[in-house]
Design a protein around this nucleic acid. Sequence first.
DNA 1: CGCTAAGATGGCAGTTTCTGCCATGTTGGC
DNA 2: GCCAACATGGCAGAAACTGCCATCTTAGCG
Lengths: 209, 209
Amino acid sequence: MVTASGSLRQLPLRDRRRAQTEREIGEAALTLFEQRGVGATTVDEIARLAGVSPRTFFRYFAVKELAALAPHRELENQFGEMLDGLRADRPVLPQLEAFWTDMLRRLDNGRSDAGRQLLRMRRLMCAEPSLRQAANRLDNPRADELVGQLAGIVGDEDHLGVRVLLSAAGAPVDIALDTWADATLSGLQVDLVAIYERCRSVLHDAVRA
Amino acid sequence: MVTASGSLRQLPLRDRRRAQTEREIGEAALTLFEQRGVGATTVDEIARLAGVSPRTFFRYFAVKELAALAPHRELENQFGEMLDGLRADRPVLPQLEAFWTDMLRRLDNGRSDAGRQLLRMRRLMCAEPSLRQAANRLDNPRADELVGQLAGIVGDEDHLGVRVLLSAAGAPVDIALDTWADATLSGLQVDLVAIYERCRSVLHDAVRA
DNA sequence: CGCTAAGATGGCAGTTTCTGCCATGTTGGC
DNA sequence: GCCAACATGGCAGAAACTGCCATCTTAGCG
């Protein structure tokens, strides 16, 4: 239960504990979802496995599906941080695409730590519509923030432009991750970055044609 | 209660009745959602207003939000029908875009019947995340069908290409509808088709750059 | 015209999700 | 060592959904 006391200081103990239980609940949820599916898993079971009360579970996650989406939130957070460093005087789309190429490369086809976690979640998502559902629920308000943030940077009054750009940059990523997760489910050896590049090519070719 | 018996034959009485109650429940839901919001409306209330039992409500709609999304389903159905007539020997994206331009024009800025209904729903959607959520829930499985359908037509093995195309065609529509509904909420006079064209321009310019 | 199978509806019981409230600990700063 | 803030658990209860059964209407068929 006690985390190594001589490690990362930075955050007060309380916050580290909170983050820790959040991870534990998430891990419990992911495990049970993989074993018997999302629908057949109750919050009570997740809570029991994580060693907390059901009431506490709902203090961490509004709905049970969200417990399994930590890697997804992580990606969004990093995307948000990147936006701050964006060059407003250059074309935006290539910069967004460069970020994603870099990010996906860092997943190392599921061999890095973050990659393994994300792959696990994405595989589950392919078989569980309710998980994708929950991811959307997470994305929608977050996307609004990002739109506002980016609109401030590039100076887009009605946000229409940045919304199109964010969608054009995001859709290929989403499709690539899906295709990737689905391929690995079949035991295939595929390269995530290559898939992403193919998605981008299709988009670019189709629009240019 | 009894529908005009001398009217539209075509469908057996039972089916017409079913469609009729579906509309009545939908109308009841939309009205209550507009009045007091989705969260503050219970299924019992919707059912009472529509003159059916709560049990019956759930035979028509799995979750209460779906009751308000009839116009959304209608759009998807028409899109699906259009796909069948697609020319496989020509660029796909322009054909999809032409369909949407045509479809949005037919909404006549909310003056046509379909337009009024859709505008009503989309306005609600801007203020109610749970409605957008439900629309996504509706879209995801439907999108899979459409992907399969289109992949069969253009001959795309792994579906990656058509997924990108459908997303590239669909996102501008979605953004345009949102922008449109939001603008009319502020009492502005805007042209939906013009907004859509702007969305497309942004996409095309960004990708070409 | 009647008979029957299929579909539509309602009621009821039961599970699950999710929320508000309060009581009890635990932590962090002073 | 003391007090305020936070974390947790338990409990009660609303609301969302599901399965089952009983009843009624419709559609097809001899």
